[in-house]
């Protein structure tokens, strides 16, 4: 009786057995990897915008405050993308013939908003309010990365739930003096005599990357802010806080 399988089939059999044991683990690894990759999170991915707006130029070089354009960030749920009028408040005077700004002028003339591509988005089942986070001293960069260094806007951080909870479970790691939220951008202004001068280590980190791990002293200050704000830590991570 002839053999059914060639001896080569042995390697196939062994390989199948190994795959059977490691396959689920591999799948899990691939799944966790892909879900965290920027392919999925879009972190650092530049979206196609109608106008190549540079935050780096407008903030770090010209020193325009965040709130000049995102005017409602302090007192509403949305930071708001500025209307064309805000752009035209300057660009009716300067760069009036720049071809790059043609869509802005068109928008102004025809009274139709510019269709910016949204870069940062929380899912619709999440209730998020910008104003409370600013009022508790959270700098823009903590969630959005160092926007003031972006030539073209891209997502700075992946909006994972575990990432939200990192602060909501331990607010003392992040809450700060609300008066200092926007002032650190001034200190980091390019080409000025106080460029990066008199910045605290924490402020420097936040300005550069939005990432900072607090020292025990800083944490103690954070605790004091938590107390002052009357933040109820126990309920801050409840489901309904965000999923209303």
């Amino acid at each position: 009786m002839a053999q059914i399988f060639h001896p080569r089939a042995n390697i196939l059999a062994k390989f199948s057995l190994i795959l059977l044991a490691t396959g689920p683990l591999l799948l899990l690894l691939i799944g966790t990897g892909v879900s965290r990759a920027s392919y999925n999170t879009k972190v650092g991915m530049v979206a196609d915008q109608p106008v190549p707006f540079s935050h780096e130029h407008h903030v770090s070089e010209l020193g325009i405050d965040c709130r000049y354009c995102h005017s409602n960030v302090e007192n509403s749920a949305h930071a708001t993308v500025p209307p064309t009028e805000t752009c035209m408040s300057c660009h009716s005077q300067i760069w009036t013939n720049s071809p790059l700004l043609e869509p802005v002028r068109q928008s102004y003339k025809t009274n139709t908003p510019i269709k910016w591509a949204q870069v940062n988005k929380v899912p619709e089942f999440v209730y998020f309010n910008h104003s409370i986070h600013i009022k508790r001293g959270l700098n823009c960069n903590i969630c959005h990365g160092s926007v003031q260094q972006m030539q073209l806007a891209s997502k700075g951080k992946a909006f994972f739930m575990v990432w939200c909870l990192n602060c909501h479970r331990n607010p003392e790691k992040f809450v700060n003096d609300p008066d200092k939220v926007f002032s650190i951008y001034e200190k980091g202004l390019k080409g000025t005599d106080h460029e990066y001068a008199d910045l605290l280590p924490e402020e420097r980190d936040i300005l550069n990357s939005g990432e900072h791990t607090r020292t025990p002293e800083e944490l103690a200050k954070g605790e004091a802010w938590v107390k002052k704000f009357g933040i109820k830590k126990k309920q801050l991570a409840d489901c309904w806080i965000c999923h209303r």
Partner: peptide
């Protein structure tokens, strides 16, 4: 209980 990004 897979390692997820929901902290759940």
């Amino acid at each position: 209980p897979y390692p997820n990004v929901l902290a759940m």
